[in-house]
Simulated scan of single mutants.
Amino acid sequence: MAKEPPTVSELREAAEISDDEINAAVDVVLADLATEAYPLAKGWTLDLVDTLRTNTRAAEARTTDKAAWKRNMVRTAILLAHPVKG
């Protein structure tokens, strides 16, 4: 059985991805989610569309006018996502 790639949070803990790179991904989602393959760092790529589609709270948050809640839910979804090394 193939091992699942690490989460963005695990990569952050291992210093593979920085908070600034995660914040940039959150900004992209909040500005206009039009990209699927988003380059994070060091060859890691995250499918932002799939990340939001599979996280119900983040998808709901994008439709609210509560900016802080929206940002936190999107960031949480990204931290829990599994990017691929490419």
Rank of each mutant, 00 (worst) to 15 (best):
A58D: 02
M1D: 13
T63Q: 15
E4L: 00
T54P: 02
A81W: 03
V26C: 10
A2F: 12
L80C: 04
A61P: 05
E10M: 09
A31E: 00
L30A: 05
T64S: 13
A59T: 12
T35L: 09
V29I: 14
E4T: 00
A58S: 06
A15S: 10
L33M: 05
E16M: 10
A24F: 14
T76F: 08
V84C: 06
E16P: 04
V28T: 13
P5G: 11
A15E: 13
L52K: 01
A31W: 07
P6H: 13
V49H: 08
D65I: 00
T54Y: 06
L79T: 01
N55M: 01
V49Q: 12
H82I: 02
K85E: 09
W44S: 01
T45K: 07
D20N: 04
A81I: 03
A68G: 14
T7M: 02
R62T: 08
T51G: 07
P5M: 05
K42A: 13
D19S: 15
V84N: 08
A81F: 05
P5R: 01
D19I: 15
P6E: 10
V8C: 04
L40A: 13
E13T: 09
A15R: 09
V29E: 11
A58Q: 03
A15L: 12
N55V: 01
E36N: 05
E13K: 09
A77K: 02
I78S: 04
K85Q: 12
L33A: 04
P5Q: 06
K3S: 02
K42T: 10
A24G: 08
L30N: 02
A2H: 05
W69R: 10
A15G: 04
A67Q: 15
L52H: 03
V26I: 09
T63H: 15
R75S: 11
M1Q: 14
V49Y: 08
E13C: 07
E16R: 07
K85S: 11
R75N: 10
A34T: 14
L30V: 08
T56P: 08
R75E: 12
S18K: 11
A31V: 13
S9G: 01
T76G: 13
K85L: 14
V49I: 12
E10F: 05
L79I: 03
R12I: 00
A14C: 02
S18W: 12
G43L: 06
E36C: 00
P5H: 08
T63I: 15
A37H: 15
E16Q: 11
V29R: 12
T54S: 06
A41I: 09
T56F: 07
K66E: 14
A68T: 15
L40V: 12
R53Y: 11
V84L: 06
V84G: 07
E21V: 05
